[in-house]
């Protein structure tokens, strides 16, 4: 009889035990591979492309500004009297393919690019430790030339290809390597190399839910006039709904790939720093495909 009692007790315990955690063992059938998103808040770290893409059928309208050198002092209101800007439209044809074009005041340059994500970082069953993106573009300057032999369109053109390999390590920290090759058909300084390779990278550290520190750096390799330096930028990203404000300090004037890699003049650690900001506004066009 005692044993029966034991079994009844056991049965009751089993009932109670089960009722407490009905979901146990049920949840395992969920998608095993999960894409890692939002390594950076924007499609540019500061100057350089980031491993982020514009989502399908979204349009990223960007206004980028760089003021003069802070070291110019009060006469130039610490650089705020001068401004160089780039305005651009980037469009996501698919989630992994972006096209964009921009116009910079610096040398009145037009630039266009295509950007394709080949690998996206993911975790779970088929984990991928990093994202791999390739961006390629062309830059044409349209400002008037005072050279005796006028440059034609080809002479005014430069091309670039950039490999981006990056990883979101945790919800706060992401980094990327972004080696780049720029080919300028006719460099401004005739002694400079046509092909300039740049190694570099960038990163971000999110210190609050909507704000992050960012930096990017590239070191040009090749024969360049000694006035040209390595572009280094440090900034803060502030995200507010559909806008991302990127405030930064940088020594680069130009905001396209040719300009920042081969025509940066300031020495960052000698105070040749420009204040600047990028403003990104995302617009959605069309209906999103139901996934």
């Amino acid at each position: 009889m005692k044993k029966i009692g034991f079994y009844i007790t056991f049965t009751v315990f089993f009932l109670v035990g089960h009722a407490q955690d009905l979901l146990k063992g049920v949840e395992d059938s969920l998608p095993a591979t999960e894409k890692v998103k939002a390594a950076f808040k924007s499609t540019r770290v500061i100057n350089a492309h980031s491993i982020e893409m514009v989502a399908r059928h979204n349009l990223d309208f960007r206004i980028m500004h760089r003021f003069g050198f802070i070291s110019d002092g009060i006469k130039q209101l610490y650089g705020l009297d001068q401004a160089s800007m780039r305005i651009s439209f980037d469009y996501g044809i698919t989630d992994n393919f972006t096209v964009g074009f921009g116009r910079s005041t610096f040398r009145k340059e037009l630039d266009g690019f295509v950007k394709k994500r080949f690998l996206q970082q993911s975790k779970g069953l088929h984990a991928m430790p990093f994202s791999l993106v390739i961006a390629a573009g062309a830059v044409i300057y349209t400002e008037e030339s005072f050279a005796t032999i006028k440059p034609n369109t080809a002479d005014r053109t430069a091309y670039y290809i950039q490999l981006l390999i990056g990883r979101k390590c945790n919800s706060r920290f992401s980094f990327q390597f972004s080696p780049i090759l720029v080919h300028t058909n006719m460099p401004l300084n005739a002694a400079d190399d046509q092909k300039i390779f740049g190694w570099g990278g960038g990163g971000r550290y999110k210190f609050s839910r909507r704000m992050a520190f960012t930096f990017d750096y590239h070191h040009p390799v090749g024969k360049l006039d000694s006035i040209y330096t390595s572009p280094l930028s440090m900034g803060v990203d502030i995200e507010t709904g559909g806008h991302v404000f990127q405030l930064q300090f940088s020594n680069a004037t130009g905001m396209n790939e040719r300009a920042y890699l081969t025509q940066t003049t300031g020495r960052f650690f000698k105070g040749n720093i420009r204040f600047g900001f990028n403003l990104s506004r995302m617009f959605k066009t069309g209906k999103r495909k139901a996934a």
Binding site: K37, A38, A55, D95, S171, G242, K284, K287, R288, A291
Partner: peptide, 20 residues
């Protein structure tokens, strides 16, 4: 799933903190 991809990102990153 949201209609706007960016909204979905913000929902996960900033509001619900879905990694955490």
């Amino acid at each position: 799933e949201f209609e706007k991809a960016l909204m979905q990102e913000h929902f996960n990153e900033d509001y619900l903190e879905s990694d955490k």
